[in-house]
Design a protein around this nucleic acid. Structure first.
Lengths: 192, 192
DNA sequence: ATATTACGGAACCAATAGTACCGAAATAGG
DNA sequence: CCTATTTCGGTACTATTGGTTCCGTAATAT
């Protein structure tokens, strides 16, 4: 492949190829989208990427870790406020709608990652830090905008209820549609 | 063991021993509480119960299925309105408190079952039907009592937000304490 | 040049859910 | 009783797959 790089890492020896890294991530993403996390083996990912399994495990400690990274950038770009929305919009409703929409494609993968997090403490910490927390921060910012007086604790509880409901439905195979986003918005604003 | 039974099943041949069934369930429960779902193998359960693996698979299709049944009765008895609570109590708050309290012991097992449900459609359906739905019905009944005018749809959404928040925190290893129950109660009643 | 590291490829290991088969024991129906 | 049927505990087995190790080779830093 191309050499792409000009000797700038502190280490000696042949440097890690960014092309190989990208190929592995792309292979993981497409395979998992099609077959689901459990049905995709590390051997399949390596083959699809034209790489060796060793190339995978040199970069990530675990299959779950690799798939997490493969879906991170995508999820972030799709949900976190593209174009910052024009003023006057319902920012909260728009955020929840984008979240539900994004989960229609990456949802199955995220479900599997949440499942993997249940049996692996180290992975759960990374999952929490790299996927859960950034999403929470983004939603909290949206909420803070419309409730500037609310305490951090109150905002966090609302974030928990909103993402909690969405994850609950995702994990139980129930639809995540615009209507859910709308009703959750109303619930958290006005109560039952 | 005792023979316990007096020839009342339609089938010919030696009948399934309820004693063996009970021993397997008890073994599964105690082993999973101590070591966690993933660390307990079917061979360990069989050995602890003084049974064979075949005895397990004659009764349940899957390890997850067996563990689900092992925790069902317990979870139900602990949460669903023991003694129906005296009038004047805050029924909703009490229900959520019992839920959180029960999860301090059976929570780890339920997390693993939720994880297993993500990769096995047939098991997810049983999990949904036997654990999730009964809990939802119980909570909805409590809510309906204090909001007799509310639509079924509105009640269901509140149930989703409440259980969603609790599952979300359970799966992410965050504490489920009385304070959470109190704040969730307030949120769903009064809004953010 | 030389040491170092990544590369693809292939063989390998360990763990374990679930199955198959055994001879023995328990039951139903005749 | 007798016989077909089924469960019993026990043991061996299969199949799958994360993750590791080792190979000879290629790319890079000094």
């Amino acid at each position: 492949m191309a050499m792409s790089g000009s000797s700038a890492s502190g280490r000696a020896g042949r440097p890690i190829s960014p092309d190989t890294t990208a190929a592995i991530l792309a292979a993981a993403r497409s395979l998992v989208v099609v077959h689901g996390f459990a049905a995709v083996t590390t051997a399949m990912i390596a083959a699809e990427a034209g790489a060796s399994k060793q190339a995978l495990y040199r970069r990530w400690t675990t299959k779950a870790d690799l798939v997490l990274e493969a879906f991170l950038a995508q999820a972030q770009a799709e949900v976190d406020d593209p174009a910052a929305a024009e003023a006057g919009d319902d920012r909260l409703l728009a955020f929840l709608r984008r979240t539900c929409a994004a989960l229609s494609t990456s949802g199955p993968a995220l479900r599997s990652l949440m499942a993997a997090a249940q049996e692996d403490d180290a992975f759960r910490r990374r999952f929490h830090e790299r996927l859960i927390l950034p999403r929470r921060a983004a939603l909290r910012a949206v909420l803070a905008e419309e409730r500037p007086a609310a305490s951090t604790e109150a905002l966090d509880l609302a974030v928990t209820a909103l993402f909690g409901a969405i994850w609950y439905r995702l994990l139980l195979d129930e639809p995540l549609d615009d209507d859910l986003a709308r009703r959750l918005t109303a619930l958290v604003r006005a109560g039952m």
